[in-house]
Every structure is written in C-alpha cells, then in structure tokens.
Amino acid sequence: MNPREPSTVRRAAAVPIGRVAAAPAFSALLGACLAGCGGGSAAVESSRGNVLLADQNNYLTTAALSIPSVDTAPAVDLDICWSQVADDLQCHPLSAQSDVDTVSLLRISHLTKHDVEGKLAAGQLSQSQVAGYVEYHPDHVATCAKLSQLSFFGTEADTPSKYVESAGLTYLLLLAKGTTPGIGARDMLFLNPTSASTNTRVDVASGCGLLDFSADLLSLQKPSVPAAGPWIVDWKDITHDGQGNPVSLRWIDGVTLGRFDGMSVEAVQARILDIELVATSLWDLALDGEDKADLSRARDRKTGAPFPGFKPADSTWMLALTCSTCQSPAPLVLTILQPI
C-alpha cells in the first residue's frame, strides 16, 4: 500500500484518492480501487455538464426485422455466396467484395426465427442464447465460401456436421463489416436445414428492405445549448434508449454532432437512415466510459477541424450518442439541440 498524494486522480477505472481526515494520530492515505487501476481513462465524479440530457430529450424509435430464410439440406458442406449483395440493411450501397469482412453463422437455441428477429431489432440477444458461433474472413476477392471454411476463431469446427435439423435451433448467417464477433452486421439470412431440401447452395440477397426502422424526432424536448458555449453535454440522467429499453451508458463510445442546413427536423426524421449522408457537416468525438462530453473537442469528420460552434443557429442541429459495439447500429440517444 503505497502512500499517494492527496487529490491524485488515478487513470484507469480508479476512483478518487484523497487524504482522510481521521481519528487521532491516524492520518490515512486512502486508495480506493475499482477495476484494476491498471489502464484506461480517468473516471471520477465531477461537476455536471451544462447541457443536460434526459429521457424526454431522446428520440423514439421502432425497429423490426424481416429476415428471409433459405431451406437447405442438413449436415452438408454448403456453398455460401454473397455476390448478389448490392446494398445493406440501411439500403446503403454494399460491395460484395470489399465491404464484407466477416461471414458468420450463429446457432441460436430456444428462439424461433420470429423471436430472433425481435431480439436483434431490440439489441437484446444474450450470450446464453448463442449455442454456437463460427466465422470466415473473406479475402475481398472471392464472394463464396464453403460452410466448412467457417471456423471457431481459426480452429476447425467441423461445421457441416453440426449444421443439423432441429426444432430448437435457429441458424442465422451474418455478413458484417469489421471482424468483431456479432458487430457490424450489414446483411442477414436465416438458414433452415431440413431433410425435405436437397439444396446445397445459399445466395445471400441484398439487405435493403429487411429492416423497418422509424424514428420520431418531433416529439422530443429540444435541449437548449448556449450558442457561445460552453457545450458540456451530460447524459448521466438517460435511462432508456430510443426503443425504450434500459440502456447501459457505459456502452456509449462516441458522440456525433450533425448540422443540417435547409432541412427541418421533420425532413431529417424522414431521412433517418441516411442522416450521415445528408448532413451538411458532421463532427465526432470518441469516448471511453465518460458520461459527458465537451463538444468543443469534437472534430469535423472530413477535415479534422475542431467544432467551430453552432453557426448558423437556425440550422437543424442533431446530437447522437453512439455505440459501435452494440447489436443495433442505431444511436442509443439522439436529440435535436436548440442553440440559444
């Protein structure tokens, strides 16, 4: 137990360390250690921000997935091809060769296809429901793979023999950008092994149309933000995401600020799946466990220039709190700021 200076703030998951006003003849230096104290970011309670977000400031969303299903013969080494894929779940262009980094197959137990669609749309799938995971990383040239090429993180899994017909199992094929398991899905397809089928080839279709996503940006209360600053946005009071699910704020790992010139809130709402495409400017800020952010630290996505302020104030200003590792790509929190 090493003495430490008072008021020192340990980096990494630690809590404040301060000198204890103690009993007679006992002047203790108190170290309190949450989580390793070994790496990461400062994480210490301090004053609140000046732009406070609460649930009434958050958008409301509905999401539903309708994932197609392909019957195949069971326990065979399928040919899985995605050469026909041209766009993704958000109807954005998707290159079958260059944009697919991971092809994965999830075996899910105790959930029907309908259940899986609901869990995925809500981002509520739990690990215990995944009864098997294999993946394949394409070389960005070929757009087909054999089922047997899907492995468990490099270890051959004899996947075809485990691809069996069972009422209790649902097989979900994912095409994803990035290589983090379960993250970045751009297209989906259920596989249905059945002895009634002799099909041994699977062609994944485009993802546009699988996701029905809508957002209500008109009903939220717009938080005011001082045009002249400071812009310390604080979301500690947020308890639910846009779908109404309890939210873990520590999953928020990014802030995106968007300016939409010549677009009303209603117009932005109508283009909710394209907000990054139709924005006049976007500024981003990466987070690591913080529950507030100083927008002056955000950087222009294209130029890297710092956020210059809310000019012009009559533009539509959108603030999104994002989670790059969540099952759903939708921002956990999204609001319309009102510069004053």
Partner: peptide, 13 residues
C-alpha cells in the same frame, strides 16, 4: 474519524 464520501468512476468500454 469522521465519515468521508467518495464516488467511484465509470467502467470503460
């Protein structure tokens, strides 16, 4: 000694 108060930080990503 007297009671003091501390507040722990957030977990990281």
């Amino acid at each position: 000694g007297d009671l003091g108060t501390i507040r722990t930080g957030n977990l990281p990503l």
